[in-house]
Structure formats: C-alpha cells, structure tokens
C-alpha cells in the first residue's frame, strides 16, 4: 500500500557548484587489506575496465592467461585495447570466489576462507555488482539485519505481521578475527516455492572482513548442508560502494538466471532504503543511534570496526 504522491516540487539535493568535503586517508588496515573490485568473468581480456577504490581511480584488464592485471588509472578509458605486458606499475592482485581483489598497500597472502566454495557439487555464481550511494559498512550492517525482512523484502524473506527477531548469539572469534552470529531465526511465510505454511529459517552470519559478510542458510535440497550467500563491498568512496554478490548453492533444479534474479530482486529492494540512510557513513559511537536486542550483531560489528581502527566509511568515536 503506497501513498499517492502530492504535487511536490523537487528540491535538488546539491547545488551545481557543489562543495567538496575534505577526504579521509584510509587507515592502515583498510589500505593493506584485499579489496574486491570486479567479477572475474566480467573482465574482458585485453580491454580496459575502470573502477574506483578508496577514492583512487583504477584500471584493470586480463592477460593472455586470463589473470587480472590492475594498476592506478591515468588516462585509460573503458574499452581501450591494451597489451597487459606494457603495464609495469601493477597493484597486488588475487582472485577469489570468482572475483578480482586488489590492494593499495601490502596485502596478506590469503583472502579470508569460505571453504564451502570449493565443494565440487555446488553451483557458484556471481550475481552482479550494484552501486549504492552509501558507505560499505552501512551495507554490511544491512546484510546482517533480519528485522527489515517483513518491511523491505515483503513476501520473500518475511511478511508482516511476523516481525519478531528472536534471541540469537553473537561472538567475535579471536582465532579467526571475525564477527559470528549464530542461531539467527526468522519466520518466513514462504521459505520455499513448494511451501504453503510459513516456517522458521535459521541463518548463520560471518563478518570475516570489515567490508564483507557471508551468510549460511539451510538448503531446501539438502537440509544437512547450507547454501552460502556472500556480499563483498568495494569501498568506492566514504559514501559510495559497489556490492558484489556471490551465491554458492546446492540446487540442481533452478537455473543460474533464476538464482541471480532472486538475489538481484532482494538487493534491488535494499538499495533505496540504504540510500535514504543518514549519515551515509556508519557511526561507531554507540550513542549516535538506538540499538535494540535484535541489533546485537550490528553492535558487535561496530565495536569490532572501532577496535580495528577502521576509519574509512565510518564516523569514528570522537576521542
């Protein structure tokens, strides 16, 4: 049910001669981490693709062996032909989970693990990359949130009046240095296409990287195993990000198009909400917003970012 729109006049949000606020220099952890920038199979060999990471313009392509090459962009344009052999000043690069990752500093040897990805019977796919006008941490927090299912993903992941977020467990795993939320349960009116009655689904969330999160939910096809959906956020600027989505499913019936469309529908519903969130950077001061018990995972996430000294895409606690 939507209200009718009145004859409003549009007030442009920004005057044409826009004031540019000063830029933040990313903290060492953010600079030295692997950051996602593209889906590997969407990167054309021998042609230039552009993107922006941490306010830094980048160019990328793939070499003859199919391996990605990334460097700081000067005057290259999208679609330019390029011989990767001529690029000498390259940024570190790795591939993982179907995506290209780079770093503006000195990255660790390995990406965080998602062991399920390597299981031979899984359908792994990238579900597209979607730009969002909000900070990467805000998007991570939305991914961890169940309370919005009935309101934002109406009749898919939830439906009014079933709005309760039951108690769940959150811990910050010291050994793996990640936030882990378990026993997350939510009532879904139609968890599977065949279902007529609602059922409670159980989720596990991991946040293994300040801008990435992995979700596990029981697979309708193999109840003892879990489907994996991951979101990798590319921090374009402090207030913009690109969401790269991965699905690693146990599903022998649905087509890849159907599975992709499902994730894109979900994300298309989140985007307008996220873009109406203020401030766009995630405030880390506990007194800046009003948490409730359902937000335990978000509280742990904010605290974890604070402890790690992440300063990019967040409003740090005033010291």
């Amino acid at each position: 049910m939507r209200r009718t729109m009145p004859p409003n006049f549009p007030i442009p949000l920004h005057a044409p001669n826009r004031y540019s606020p000063p830029m933040t220099t990313p903290d060492p952890l953010t600079l030295n981490s692997w950051q996602v920038i593209a889906a590997l199979d969407e990167l054309p060999p021998g042609l230039v693709e552009r993107t922006i990471l941490l306010d830094t313009p980048l160019a990328m392509t793939r070499d003859r062996d199919g391996l990605p090459v990334v460097w700081r962009r000067t005057d290259e344009e999208t679609g330019d032909e390029i011989d990767p052999e001529t690029i000498f000043d390259r940024l570190p690069v790795t591939t993982g989970y179907g995506f290209v990752w780079t770093s503006l500093g000195t990255p660790p040897t390995d990406l965080f693990p998602i062991p399920e990805y390597a299981e031979p019977d899984r359908v792994n796919m990238s579900c597209g990359s979607i730009g969002i006008h909000v900070s990467a941490p805000r998007a991570v927090e939305n991914f961890l949130d169940m309370g919005h299912f009935p309101y934002v993903h109406t009749d898919i992941l939830g439906a009014e009046p079933h709005t309760e977020v039951k108690e769940y467990d959150v811990e910050v795993s010291e050994e793996r240095d990640e936030v882990l939320a378990t026993r997350c349960r939510f009532f879904q009116p139609r968890a599977a296409l065949s279902a007529t009655d609602g059922m409670e689904v159980e989720y596990v969330y991991r946040v293994p990287h300040p801008y990435c999160s992995v979700l596990y939910k029981s697979s309708p096809e193999a109840p003892e195993r879990r489907d994996v959906i991951a979101i990798f956020l590319q921090p374009v600027s402090e207030e913009r990000c690109r969401a790269h989505l991965l699905q690693s499913m146990i599903d022998s019936t649905s087509t890849i198009t159907e599975l992709r469309r499902f994730q894109q529908t979900i994300f298309g519903q989140d985007k307008p909400i996220l873009e109406n969130q203020y401030p766009k950077r995630l405030p880390l001061d506990p007194r800046s917003e009003t948490p409730i018990r359902a937000d335990k995972s978000a509280i742990a996430y904010r605290r974890w970012l604070s402890q790690k000294g992440v300063n990019y895409g967040v409003i740090p606690v005033a010291s």
Partner: peptide, 27 residues
C-alpha cells in the same frame, strides 16, 4: 528531524498511518 532514531533512515519515506508514522526500514 527526518531520521529514524534506530538506523537513520529518512522518515519522509515512511508511512503516515494517521496517528503514527511508521518507518519503512523496520516498522
């Protein structure tokens, strides 16, 4: 103030129920 105290979503995209305003994000 155009901001839900919970997560900062604009209340101007919320729903006017006549006696209460309902936030679009978490209701």
């Amino acid at each position: 103030e155009n901001r839900c105290l919970h997560r900062g979503v604009r209340l101007s995209i919320g729903i006017n129920e006549g006696g209460e305003l309902k936030c679009q994000y978490h209701g």
